[in-house]
Simulated scan of single mutants.
Amino acid sequence: MKKSLFLTFGFVLLSLTNFYAQKITDGATVDVNGLSVTFNILNKEAINVGGKNFDRYKVSAGVTNNSGKSINMRMATAPQIVTNIALVEVNCINATGAKLTSKKIELKPKAHNLNVTYWAYNKEGKYESSVIPVIAGYYLDPGDTVNDTAIFIVPQGETPDVSVRKLK
Rank of each mutant, 00 (worst) to 15 (best):
P79I: 00
G10M: 15
T117F: 10
A28P: 04
E106D: 06
A111R: 10
V12E: 04
K2P: 05
L35S: 04
N147V: 08
A76Y: 01
L7Q: 04
V90S: 07
L13C: 11
I85K: 04
L16P: 03
F19Y: 09
I71P: 08
T117G: 09
S129Y: 11
N115D: 14
T117E: 15
T96R: 09
V63I: 10
V12S: 09
L5K: 15
I41P: 06
I47L: 08
I135W: 02
A21M: 11
E106P: 05
I153F: 10
T101R: 08
V63R: 07
I105H: 06
M75H: 03
W119N: 12
F54L: 00
K110E: 12
T29W: 10
K2W: 09
I135R: 09
V32L: 13
Q22S: 15
R74H: 11
K58M: 14
C92N: 14
F39Q: 05
V82P: 05
A98P: 06
T77F: 07
G137H: 00
N122H: 10
K2A: 15
L35F: 15
D31F: 04
V63N: 08
G97Q: 08
Y127S: 06
W119M: 13
L140N: 01
K103I: 10
N84D: 10
A61Y: 06
D144T: 07
I153S: 04
S36H: 13
G51W: 05
E45W: 00
F6M: 12
L140A: 02
A76N: 08
C92I: 13
I135E: 02
R56I: 00
V63W: 06
V49E: 07
I85P: 06
F11G: 09
Y57F: 15
G34Q: 09
N65E: 00
A78L: 03
A98H: 11
E106C: 11
